[in-house]
Design a protein around this nucleic acid. Sequence first.
DNA 1: GTAGTCCCTGTAGTAGATACAGGTTCAAGA
DNA 2: TCTTGAACCTGTATCTACTACAGGGACTAC
Lengths: 139, 139
Amino acid sequence: MAFAATDRPLKRGALARRFGCNIETIRYYENIALLPAPERTRSGHRIYSPADQTRLGFILRARELGFSVEELRSLLSLADSHEYTCGEVLTLTRGHLTDIRTRIKDLARLEHTLADISAQCEGGDVPHCPVMDALLKDG
Amino acid sequence: MAFAATDRPLKRGALARRFGCNIETIRYYENIALLPAPERTRSGHRIYSPADQTRLGFILRARELGFSVEELRSLLSLADSHEYTCGEVLTLTRGHLTDIRTRIKDLARLEHTLADISAQCEGGDVPHCPVMDALLKDG
DNA sequence: GTAGTCCCTGTAGTAGATACAGGTTCAAGA
DNA sequence: TCTTGAACCTGTATCTACTACAGGGACTAC
């Protein structure tokens, strides 16, 4: 995805295509106040300025990096303040990194357990299975 | 968690304590038909037989192994048929294992990207941050 | 004018639980 | 027997981060 702003206003559909996101996602971000309510045409169609587009790019990139919406709110409020320090951002980033590493560890443990159990399987038409045994046996 | 059935009926609270799960989870599994509707006392309290308990244990163990509820439905229907083969179970397990490995890879890529970016941070009171740059820059 | 595409709104659905309110019932002690 | 507090019942709301849909208005090209 490009996530690149244009130098002219765009409507919602064009914005979604430009940023490679779902059109409904944009309205969603407005609903939860990540994006400000944009200008409208007289008939009510949303018009996204270059600044709006840049902000959407920020949001989408942060989401691609796995930041949760709440973490993103913190990032945005830092960015909006124009007075953030590297230390503040780094603290948020490190917290997020810790979450990711925890998730990786949990999944790796899972993967290991499952691989171990299924390695004992013969497969085929045998009417008995180590995976089922593992699920059925009392711990 | 023990996930071990007793040889006597239990009410919902005792069952939850026994299996180390949330009491509401048991009702939830009944609602989505993973657990059958159990016997009731005359006044309507649920009574879980040893067989019900064994089934809950199966469900909780499968969830601990990361099987989704839908995968679990398949596993349970195999287990209920009493005619499953190792091959059938193995197919489900391998599909699940593939999912897990994909998730691990995605997270590892994320971790790598984030670690790379934040390694460029000086931290502290510096009013400039490579993480913010990465989020702000057009792709 | 009209056809087709876009956009608008509100609402519901997804996974997998968890929490809560408001009302019974149970079990133990006085 | 009465009372008190815990446990149980039901239905519904909440969470994350979207996505989808229905029913209608607007815009563009021919």
